[in-house]
Design a binder for these strands. Structure first.
Lengths: 205, 205
DNA sequence: ATTCATACGTACCGATCGGTAACATTGTCA
DNA sequence: TGACAATGTTACCGATCGGTACGTATGAAT
């Protein structure tokens, strides 16, 4: 579900020129199709057809399908950090509550019927080749997420913050995958509870 | 790395007929290529070329590419349970030690340079459509793994065994994904330590 | 030696893949 | 009104996709 916010910002160049409308429609449709059915599974023909545009329009706005996929993932990345920061901002100075808020939301999100996993994680699975435009977006996101989780673990006062931060990342990625494998009632439903248990144990160590 | 054991069993029919040698070569090559580079990324032409056979040979042994992929995953499933049961058999009656042994091995395995995640998880990501031959193999595997992990958590005496079992599954899936995202030195390295912490906390609850 | 099933190879199928060339049409703003 | 940028139209490219029709080699039993 691509939000309309920030899309123009992601598409238009730094001049305040009028943003092409076709590019937005293309990216919206690509976002939906790539996420729901996979990048490799979707051809550019289907994208332009569903977007009501033509192929040359796609290639005027995006240099290649791979770069279109990367644009989709950059949008996904943006929305991810919006969700993450919402949880963080809701509990200023309380890293543990921030984690709890974020993971509670993840637990719900991953149980939704249309949930199909993390778009960036999925893309990395679809494109194992190092340096692929779609893959690097995901790699950067995960690296940054790891950094922040470790920092939050340290802020909680965990003796071994790196291990706890990594443990939280494992739980999160596990929830992403389990959500799309099991659907409703799967292991992802208990991600927040397990994280809390893990945090508790790590702080007392 | 497909082991030669059990392959004939997986290929040949229940009559003790002589198994076609081409099918084994095809499955071996398909296993390697599908795992390393993804199922959708590999065409049947490349498989038969690398296997030194021809396309009709492939379609005489396997009804379709999708079914070949399913055969690859059934082989992967077989080897998965071999690894799992090795850890279990090494510590009879001690579920906690069994988990520790298995996860220690997972932690190492997911750090190897050629590691590319769990073949079944990856296939489920590549084929989100319900009922796809490749997907169902993975779904069955995960369902059974969940059942066994929950049973082991109960055997440990966890008050909320289902939650602990699910937590372990989340950590495992997280390790699979993180292994291929981060490689050496990634969060997967601490999967066993985090699992132990989580178990400890769950038992004391 | 002939038979007969089985495995294999050559050549091909239509469809789709990502991507492009060349040109017509539109809407907007000066 | 003229100019310009964005989009559309049509047709095409070579490559690859999964899959098959059909003839040929091979090996064991008779």
């Amino acid at each position: 579900m691509p939000s309309d916010k920030n899309i123009e910002l992601a598409i238009s160049d730094d001049h305040a020129s009028a943003p092409p409308k076709a590019a937005k429609k293309i990216l919206d449709v690509a976002y939906d199709l790539f996420y729901r059915r996979g990048i490799r599974a979707i051809g550019v023909d289907e994208i332009v057809k569903r977007a009501g545009v033509t192929k040359p329009s796609l290639y005027r706005s995006f240099p290649s399908k791979d770069e279109l996929a990367a644009s989709y993932l950059r949008q996904y990345d943006l929305e991810f950090w919006q969700r993450f920061d919402e949880a963080v901002d809701a509990h200023p100075g309380d890293a543990r509550a921030q984690i709890r808020a974020f993971l509670t939301r993840v637990g719900k999100r991953t149980q939704m019927p249309q949930y199909r996993g993390c778009g960036m994680t999925n893309a990395a699975v679809e494109y194992p080749e190092r340096g692929h435009p779609a893959r690097v977006v995901g790699e950067d996101n995960k690296r940054e997420l790891r950094r922040r989780l470790r920092a939050m673990a340290a802020a909680m006062g965990a003796p071994d913050a790196d291990t706890l931060g990594d443990g939280l990342l494992l739980l999160i990625e596990g929830a992403y995958i389990s959500g799309q494998l099991f659907g409703l009632g799967g292991p992802a439903q208990s991600v927040a509870a397990n994280a809390d248990l893990l945090i508790e144990a790590s702080l007392k160590k």
